[in-house]
Design a protein around this nucleic acid. Sequence first.
DNA 1: CGGTTTTTTGAATATATTCAAATTGAGTGG
DNA 2: CCACTCAATTTGAATATATTCAAAAAACCG
Lengths: 263, 263
Amino acid sequence: MAKAQTTTNVVSFAQSSTACKKCSLHVMCGGEGAQGRSVFSQKSCGHNGRVIDRGEYLFRQGDRMQALYVIRSGTVKATISASDGTEQVIRFYLSGDVVGLDALGEQRHVSSAQALETTSFCRFALAEIDEGCARAPSAVRQFMRIAGEELAHEEQHAMLISQRDAEQRMAMFLLQLSEQYGRRGYSDREFNLHMSRQDVASFLSLAVETVSRIFTQFHVNGLLKVERRHIRLLSLEKLREVVGVPAGALPAGKSQHYAQGLN
Amino acid sequence: MAKAQTTTNVVSFAQSSTACKKCSLHVMCGGEGAQGRSVFSQKSCGHNGRVIDRGEYLFRQGDRMQALYVIRSGTVKATISASDGTEQVIRFYLSGDVVGLDALGEQRHVSSAQALETTSFCRFALAEIDEGCARAPSAVRQFMRIAGEELAHEEQHAMLISQRDAEQRMAMFLLQLSEQYGRRGYSDREFNLHMSRQDVASFLSLAVETVSRIFTQFHVNGLLKVERRHIRLLSLEKLREVVGVPAGALPAGKSQHYAQGLN
DNA sequence: CGGTTTTTTGAATATATTCAAATTGAGTGG
DNA sequence: CCACTCAATTTGAATATATTCAAAAAACCG
């Protein structure tokens, strides 16, 4: 189950230079110049690339932190298990996501990260990151940015999860996935779930049965077609209605916030 | 409601040098030396100190980020409001906590931060932080640490919230507060809630009525004495039992994690 | 193809919510 | 200082929603 495969190369790392330019840890990768980012665009970052099979772990809860990871392709789920044994999925990572940030605090991973399918990723050793930050001030900034995004993401997820009912959570989950796939150039209407119903249930804090029921309910109501792991969204609009958000949700806050007193 | 008070000084900033040494953004404060931390111990960091009254905001959701804040004394609640108007408390900050990290991503605050009582804090302008990071490599590391802790905290909270029932959440909430107060030198058995029942309910994703009911339930069962906002915990042990965690919970992960394949 | 796991479906139950109303407390102005 | 209003909290009863238990069906694995 946990044997490294050396033969199969799911992703060609050679062709990755364009993808690398969009990588959020790109600045950590190579080059010694502080300013010109264009320096990096010539380099392939593939030297960091690795692949793991489904079921294998990037790291486990409690492990001493050694690196950060950026997903190139595949899907990873992050889980936290409490001392009483209960385990919960707290996040799914797709390509482009940075994994492992939560360990920056105590230098130990608070969650486990497991591949749900064959997954390729880049590994950034802590030392590399330190170097990168020391070399380029922009790296520090970039790093802060990533951490902030992750934090904001987490807060918003917590908010969404706990305030909505089962239907809304499911709709939200699907819309989120749709958006993520869309942003990465895949179809936002049709995709495969790489996670089990159990995983989805855990992520949304629902019972497996409930997840199953709502899938069929959505299917019956014509919101989507579901066949095993294959999902085809028939109406993003209706899904959005289910979530209960009339206009734009998270994407852009067009609210009219007033000025604060002192700060 | 939002007038700055110039007369009252709740906290003497002069006496704060010892507290400052423990501040997690201490390294950002003054001094130009890169290494010797002892340099800073002489300085009072009070020059950053500010005070706001109950009800005032540190910042509001959507505001452009200008600074990070460290609470010196008082209580702050962070809320997120969705586009449909629903608002949720996502966190309470006490003295020593760093507020505003979630804005590091998009440079805009994802949540609002409002004082629940007269609150004093230090303000670290973004520029200061950049400087600090540029000056001292340790500052970068420290910063990463804070961000990581915050992230881990958020993940664990999400985990706890969503997997437990109302009683467990309440017990958890009280134990958490108890621990936080204890860590800060206050009594961990007796304290005042600076947040309303509504705030607690929102934070735990429960109805106000449920919070109220469980308070009285705990009271009747002898777990605590509650009178309005004043809480006196009579049995931390029983509260822990309610949460359902036999041994140690979050504090230290004594689990036997195995080595990962490659990483 | 047989054994095992995952997923789906059904029915009963439980838990927290909602609605409604009473009570308490805080703040204000006379 | 007291009466008053308004907001927060508590309590009760009915309801609703998701869970649990149980079992069948479908998919997966070797």
